[in-house]
């Protein structure tokens, strides 16, 4: 229960812990952000719980491995909390968070280009493999997945992000432009060349 002083001079509203949790659950996005900024743990928790899975999934799909997923998710949320005072609410919270994810993933892709990961895609293979398949089918599926991520690895980071957002996350050009902070024409061009390059690499790979 947080006895917040009201601006209009009235005494603080008294609520029970249960009500406080309820308040947080019912809070709108701006209210949630305001309460996060006040340092309310319940607000932090709701914000984290609502978005953690989507953030992790987004990072994981772009990067293809889970090696540093925890650290990257933490990084995304820390950047989000640091940036909250500047969040103006002109985009949805999820879009804003998506944008941070993309920037974190881009940073990771760039550093990976300088220093390749020791065990790439091991986790992706494990995650996607369907338990209902036979051993042979699982193996084939894993090989196919490895092929896809090898082709993705060959793309430049910016092209890769645009490709993943369009082909995997199924976002439209306008949304991608908003997230990556580039004009739609640029996004369209990047996507065109990313698709060309990706499918060329796929077609050229020996089966």
């Amino acid at each position: 229960m947080i006895p917040t002083m009201r601006r209009d001079g009235r005494p603080p509203r008294v609520s029970t812990p249960g009500e406080a949790v309820e308040d947080i659950l019912r809070a709108s996005e701006p209210e949630l952000i305001r309460r996060c900024l006040l340092g309310e743990r319940a607000a932090f928790e709701r914000f984290y719980r609502e978005h953690a899975r989507a953030v992790a999934a987004n990072l994981y799909r772009v990067l293809g491995d889970r090696g540093e997923l925890d650290d990257l998710v933490q990084e995304v949320f820390l950047i989000a909390f640091r940036g909250m005072p500047r969040f103006r609410g002109d985009a949805k919270l999820s879009t804003w968070l998506y944008r941070i994810c993309v920037n974190v993933a881009l940073g990771r892709l760039r550093s990976r280009a300088r220093r390749p990961p020791p065990v790439p895609y091991a986790d992706a293979l494990e995650e996607v493999a369907c338990a209902a398949l036979s051993a042979d089918e699982r193996l084939a599926q894993q090989q196919e997945l490895a092929r896809v991520y090898r082709a993705l690895e060959g793309l430049a980071p910016k092209k890769r992000v645009v490709f993943v957002l369009h082909e995997i996350e199924e976002l439209d050009i306008a949304e991608i432009a908003d997230i990556v902070g580039a004009p739609q024409v640029t996004v369209r061009t990047r996507l065109h060349y990313a698709r060309k390059e990706f499918y060329r690499r796929i077609a050229e790979e020996a089966p």
Partner: peptide, 18 residues
């Protein structure tokens, strides 16, 4: 054939979450 297989795999990745 390889492009279509890759597209099927992408659909699989789309539905996955860590």
């Amino acid at each position: 054939a390889r492009v279509e297989a890759a597209r099927a795999t992408i659909a699989l990745v789309r539905g996955s979450s860590p």
